[in-house]
Write a protein that binds this DNA or RNA. Structure first.
Lengths: 244, 244
DNA sequence: TCAAAAGTGTTGCCCGTACACCCATGT
DNA sequence: ACATGGGTGTACGGGCAACACTTTTGA
C-alpha cells in the first residue's frame, strides 16, 4: 500500500464501498430409504433471499458492508452470527471482486470468504429468508436446489450481483484444497467413519473412489478412536483428524 | 456483496481507503566470471524508496490508491506504466490485506497483485527511487539485496507497512504455482534453453534438479524451435512454451 | 586434450489404481 | 442365508529421483 507523492490527504477522495460476502458450506445427512443402504450426504451452501433493492427477490450470498473498525474476519463472523449463532468456523479468504459494474448503484468492491462448518453445530435460524441450498457439482455445471425443488443453474446468472461467479470460484477452491490440505475436516464432525469422509470427497470432486485406495490416501491424516459407529451393519471404526 | 436491509444509502458511511500494491518479479542475468561456466540467474523484485510519509525513506512496493472508475488491474498497470513503460505483463491477484493498523494514518485495505515480466522488455526508468532488489530464497528466510550490498531480511520488517508479509506471501504463491502451472514462462524470454529454465526453477524453489529428470518434467510444456544458443560451449537447443 | 555443458538411457522406488477376497452384522 | 458395508492384501503401471554415459564445443 504505497501511493503517489501527491496523495497527501488520503481521506480526501472518493472511495469505493467495501463489502464482505460469505460462502458458508456444510454437509447435510439424508437418511436412506432402504435400511440396508447407507444414507446420502449432500453439500450445502447458505443463501439469503433479498427483500430489498438491488436484486430484490433474488437469492444471494449473506454479506455486509465492512465497518471502519473491523477486519474482514470480524465483518464475516458478525454477519454469520447475526443470522445464526455459529462457532468453530473454518475461514479462508477466497478472492476480491472488483468489476466496476458489479453493483448497479455505485462502485462496490467485495471480498469473498470461504467458510466451512459441520452442520451439527448450527443453531436454527429465525430468519425466514435464509435457506440452505444443496450444491450439485458435476463436470458441466453446478446446480443449487432448495428443499422445494427450485433449481438455480450457476451457468445462468440467476443470483444477485456476481454471486454465481463467486460460488463457482469457491467450489473450485474447495475442490483444489480438498486434494492437498486438511480443509475437508472443517466439514466433518469431530468423529467420522472413513466411508463418511469418502462420501464427502466424492461429493466435492464428483468422482468415485474405491474403499481400499481411499483409506490409503487418507491414512496419514486421520487416526482411529477406539469407538465404533453401530448405526448400520458391521460397526465402523470412528476416526478423528490426526493432531500435529 | 449483499447488505443489511438497513443500509439503504450506501454512500453514506465512512469507508476504508483502497490501494493496489504490485509485486513485480523478473529474472536478471549475471555473466559468469569463468568463461567455462554458465552465467547465474537471479530473481528480482521492484521496490520504490519512499520519500514521503508514512515510512519515509523506507523501501516499499510500488502501489497506488484505486480510483472510482478503474479496476484493480487498471490501477496496477497505471502504476507500473507511470514508473516504467512495460507491456506483456502476467498479472494475478495475490491477496487482500486488511489489518486495521497496517497504515498508521487511517484504515487502508490493500489488494496485492503478483506480476511477472521478462526483463528484456524493461525500458529503463527515469525514477531514481526505483530499484530492482535481488530475492534470495532459502528454507529459513528471504533476503533482498540491492546492487550496493544493502540487505533486507524479510523476517525483520524493514519495509514499509506490511510489505514484508506481502512479499513472503508472493514468493510462496510463486513457489506453489511454478510446480503445477505455466506461470514460470511469464519470467522467461520467448525462447530459452532447458538449462535456463532449470536455473529459474532452482532459484524459486531453492532446490536442485538433475538435467535428465528436469527435461522429462518439463517435456510436455515446451517445444523445440530449431535454433540453437551458441553463446556457450556445445550449442543448446532453444525451446518455447507449447501452444494449445 | 580437457573442462564444462548438452543430451540420452537405465534402474529402482513410491504411490495411485484396479481388483479380489474375507469379516461382521441384523433381518 | 443373504445383502450390505467394513476392512485388508496383491499386482500392475506411471512418474520421479539417482546415476552413468556419450556428444559437442572452444580454449
Amino acid at each position: 500500500m504505497s501511493e503517489n507523492q501527491q496523495d497527501n490527504k488520503i481521506d480526501d477522495y472518493q472511495k469505493p464501498s467495501l463489502t464482505v460476502d460469505n460462502l458458508l458450506f456444510a454437509i447435510a445427512d439424508e437418511p436412506s430409504d432402504n435400511i440396508r443402504k447407507l444414507g446420502n450426504k449432500k453439500l450445502q451452501i447458505l443463501l439469503i433471499k433479498r427483500n430489498y433493492e438491488p436484486f430484490e427477490n433474488c437469492w444471494g450470498l449473506p454479506g455486509a458492508f465492512m465497518q471502519m473498525e473491523e477486519s474482514f474476519l470480524e465483518t464475516s463472523t458478525r454477519v454469520l452470527n447475526e443470522k445464526m449463532k455459529l462457532s468453530n468456523i473454518y475461514f479462508e479468504q477466497l478472492y476480491t471482486f472488483d468489476d466496476i459494474k458489479r453493483d448497479p448503484r455505485t462502485r462496490v468492491v467485495s471480498v469473498a470468504y470461504l467458510a466451512l462448518i459441520n452442520k451439527v453445530n448450527v443453531a436454527r435460524s429465525d430468519d425466514a429468508n435464509l435457506c440452505w441450498f444443496t450444491v450439485e457439482i458435476s463436470k458441466k455445471q453446478i446446480v443449487l436446489n432448495d428443499e422445494h425443488g427450485n433449481k438455480i443453474d450457476l451457468n445462468n446468472a440467476q443470483l444477485a450481483f456476481d454471486h454465481s461467479k463467486i460460488i463457482r470460484m469457491g467450489v473450485e477452491r474447495l475442490q483444489n484444497k480438498v486434494e492437498y490440505s486438511n480443509i475437508v475436516f472443517g466439514l466433518m464432525q469431530k468423529e467420522f467413519t472413513i466411508a463418511e469422509l469418502q462420501q464427502v470427497f466424492e461429493l466435492i470432486l464428483d468422482k468415485k473412489f474405491t474403499k481400499a485406495n481411499f483409506e490409503r490416501k487418507l491414512r496419514d491424516k486421520i487416526e482411529p478412536t477406539n469407538q465404533y459407529r453401530t448405526s448400520g451393519f458391521r460397526p465402523a471404526m470412528l476416526y478423528k483428524t490426526k493432531e500435529n
